[in-house]
Design a protein around this nucleic acid. Structure first.
Lengths: 190, 190
DNA sequence: GGTGTACTATACAGATCGGTCTAGTTCCAG
DNA sequence: CTGGAACTAGACCGATCTGTATAGTACACC
């Protein structure tokens, strides 16, 4: 068992594999990281990976589903107590700023994943799901905010959100998220 | 020579390799596409690739440098005749909208490339170069536009630009570029 | 005609890829 | 005590990867 693997000591093989995939796939890319690197970091036998997930593709899928659920949970936890639609919208950007400030932030996992998969991949479906969820949330909040054109506002906020993540990925700082938030403040009424 | 390769008929081996790399790397990713696929589409012998570029990494680098120069040329050609800083800023978004409307648009090549390379790669340098160029351009235009805080405006426009490209990549339409342009219209004075 | 350059075709090397298989260990439940 | 589930270690498979080496072709220039 590697040094890295010791961190996951008490977890099941499945959880350890997901934790390792979560780090390696996100940091270095789906195709750059091989099965061997993952099982080494997870401290798990190769047979366990194939018993649990069946294939690398399935592990990739599980990794992305986990990312989607984690982000959803973080955003909801962040904004649920906020008093207004406007505050909740800005809270979404605050949540990203927090993540972008942490070391190891590399942008949106779904954008990264979709950059290295062909058209018909199962990755695409998860990406669409998570984007649809976020757009729905923004649309709902835009409506509640009293915007004159909630649909357009939601899409503009989505562009800002995506742009902040990419700029964070490429430039390695959280400044872009503050810029995006500043623009959002101007766009959202109230 | 494959069917695809016939397109590049009159070009040198170097140009054909770059053209093939430009399609395949962009569409499917740096690590997904192997040398064999590239030389097949280029209709070129493997030895020619290694005589010309020396390694796959060097081909990747040349591909990205070509992308950078092509984009710079397109943007400059698009905005040079425009009458004001404001028009030139919006022209940058118009240029992207045009590209995003073409079939096969998959977002920013540099974002895609950086999503599948480790930290210390030579890809990083080209990405920084092209981003620095665009940010400089936006900063200069923001200053000329008479904005009260040109630096902040430039960075906000950069977020919008990045976001538009990503949304185009993920959603497969040019609508996001129009949304980004609409926000830019609000931000730039005049 | 002869020489060099640019190129092609293809076999090959060594590493690594995803994935399978066997054999053995640990440990809890009946 | 026994059986089964969960897991480990590692050999192994065929395919594919980047890169090299060999041998030969087409053509321009002197």
């Amino acid at each position: 068992m590697s040094e890295q693997a010791a961190v996951y000591e008490h977890l099941s093989a499945r959880a350890r594999l997901l934790a390792a995939a979560n780090e390696l796939f996100y940091e270095e890319g789906l195709n750059t990281v091989g099965i061997d690197r993952i099982i080494e970091r997870a401290g798990v036998a190769k047979a366990s990976l194939y018993n649990t997930f069946g294939s690398k593709d399935a592990l990739v899928h599980a990794y992305l589903v986990g990312r989607h659920e984690a982000r959803r949970a973080r955003i909801i936890a962040r904004i649920e107590a906020l008093p207004s639609a406007r505050a909740r919208i800005l809270g979404i950007f605050d949540e990203m700023e927090q993540r972008a400030s942490e070391p190891g932030f590399k942008g949106c996992a779904f954008v990264r994943a979709s950059a290295e998969t062909r058209e018909g991949s199962c990755v695409k479906a998860v990406c669409e799901e998570t984007r649809a969820w976020l757009l729905d949330l923004l649309r709902s909040l835009a409506k509640d905010s009293g915007a004159s054109d909630p649909e357009a506002l939601a899409r503009q906020l989505m562009v800002l959100y995506d742009g902040a993540a990419v700029a964070g990925q490429m430039d390695g700082d959280a400044n872009a998220t503050r810029m995006a938030r500043a623009v959002a403040e101007q766009l959202v009424p109230g």
